[in-house]
Design a protein around this nucleic acid. Sequence first.
DNA 1: GGCTCTCGTTACCGTCGGAAACCACGTATC
DNA 2: GATACGTGGTTTCCGACGGTAACGAGAGCC
Lengths: 125, 125
Amino acid sequence: MVLRMRTKVKALPGCPMSRCMALLGGCWTPEVLWSLSDGPRRFSELRRDIPAISAKVLTGRLRDLEERGVLARHVMPTSPPTVEYELTSLGQELLPAIRSIVEVGSRLLLRDSPRLMIASPSLRG
Amino acid sequence: MVLRMRTKVKALPGCPMSRCMALLGGCWTPEVLWSLSDGPRRFSELRRDIPAISAKVLTGRLRDLEERGVLARHVMPTSPPTVEYELTSLGQELLPAIRSIVEVGSRLLLRDSPRLMIASPSLRG
DNA sequence: GGCTCTCGTTACCGTCGGAAACCACGTATC
DNA sequence: GATACGTGGTTTCCGACGGTAACGAGAGCC
């Protein structure tokens, strides 16, 4: 599911949770950061990585994250122009939290259906 | 900021991130789980722990999380009746992700203003 | 009688996300 | 020359969610 933006309420100044959620917050943000954790990706690549996200929201989230200094936007002078998004050093600092979420999810999937995981071809090769 | 609920879009069946976000998702959810990580807490205690959350949203989030099996609701037959919320074993499994978020936040706060952290009385005693 | 505390519920409104259409530009194909 | 496609978005409309404020019953206190 999703993280929503809090527009009106300001974070408590000294709260670590609020400090981190101010960057992680927003619908699809964790998914976007997870997709960027392997290296720079283009707009259309992000759409394919996260099929359920709409172009509008992806645009919004990328603009938000750029404004917050989490990622950088690079426009390449090709034709048609391609745009690459890349995590900044601040973005990299968020990855431990993202990886932890993925780890917890993996553990839950394993518990849900261990036979499915063992039988999966992608885990054998 | 906030995690928002995705009502229409279903999670990909085998995606670890989606599996975890299906439980972590929703506005204020990480904050609530973090507050409950120390042990059971009552409704009014949660409101004091997270001053910015409204009663309406807190009620909704607690109902959601109960339905998903993340926490349990205990009504004590006192007068006035007190209600306690407690993490289930499933809820406990989410804590590594929550702790990781808090750790990242702490590191960011330290980087923001190291002198402030050192000077803080709460960290000296 | 009034004030407080408990744990919520309700109504209203603003904002955000979802869906689909549309856009300019350049390339490729027919 | 016309059509189609791939880029990286923008625009419009609508429904769902969160924020705010008011209100609720039952009990204790002065």
